[in-house]
């Protein structure tokens, strides 16, 4: 896949925090490149620095030193507002706890990122939101409110919200962490479908099992990469899902 465009390039990324007067090194020189169309899992136990890396990749945080280029643009020199615009145009976030707006319909939740993009008309906004919800298989639940949906459905809405702005990458943070096994696999199947359609996905998780289903696996420990392996034949999440016993006891 090396012929593909570079989406992310990080070089010698370091991030230090001062906690209670002591310097904590969360990232100690991380370098990798992610190309368009990859499904990368970033793995590590808690304290490995994966959350810090996620925040930096998501342009929510800036590295103490090192270089981060997203879609050819250098991010670490950007102002807060410029990074907000980058998040709005180039990144789709999926969180562990969905983070949908309460008492708000699916379609309104999905429209939200486009509300912060003034170049999208209200007509186009609605159209794109409907399309994104169709892509995650929720075309029959456009007007369901977030509290009227199951966890799996809520996560699908969240994924639709991440897709609606046509981002260059989807950044998922433990996106299956709050779901039961069956629902996890159905969400994972959705991610694989998106991957097959050419989306770039970065999936941060502590669950080593998920590495089987991605095309590449980066393992972090103590702020450093300990392994970075390609998975040439990812397992099918759909098959795993179908192999699960049905809940009918």
């Amino acid at each position: 896949m090396t012929e593909n465009k570079e989406i992310i390039r990080v070089e010698n990324l370091r991030r230090e925090f001062i906690v209670g007067g002591e310097k904590v090194k969360a990232l100690r020189g991380v370098s990798f490149t992610i190309y368009q169309g990859e499904f990368v899992t970033i793995m590590g136990t808690s304290g490995s620095g994966k959350s810090t890396l996620l925040n930096i990749l998501g342009c929510l945080d800036t590295p103490t030193s090192g270089e981060y280029r997203l879609d050819g643009v250098s991010v670490q020199t950007m102002s807060k507002n410029q990074r907000a615009v980058i998040r709005n145009r180039k990144i789709g976030f999926v969180f562990q706890n969905y983070n949908l707006l309460p008492k708000t319909t699916a379609i309104e939740n999905v429209e939200l990122p486009l509300l912060y993009n003034s170049s999208v008309s209200s007509h186009e906004r609605r159209e794109r939101a409907v399309k994104a919800l169709e892509a995650v298989g929720l075309h029959e639940r456009l007007y369901h409110k977030s509290n009227q949906m199951s966890g799996g459905q809520q996560q699908r809405v969240a994924i639709a919200r991440a897709l609606v702005n046509e981002p260059v990458m989807i950044l998922a943070d433990e996106a299956t962490g709050n779901l039961d096994t069956r629902t996890s696999f159905s969400i994972l199947t959705l991610f694989q479908e998106l991957y097959e359609r050419g989306r770039t996905i970065i999936f941060v998780t502590h669950n080593p099992e998920l590495a089987l289903y991605s095309s590449r696996n980066i393992v972090l420990r103590d702020g450093k990469i300990v392994s970075d392996t390609l998975n040439l034949s990812p397992a099918s999440a759909r098959e795993a899902f179908e192999a699960l016993p049905n809940d009918n006891d």
Partner: peptide, 16 residues
Amino acid sequence: TREIGLRMSIGARGID
């Protein structure tokens, strides 16, 4: 606070 965090993560600027 969470909602504000979410809005910021999907691209709301401080001024928004």
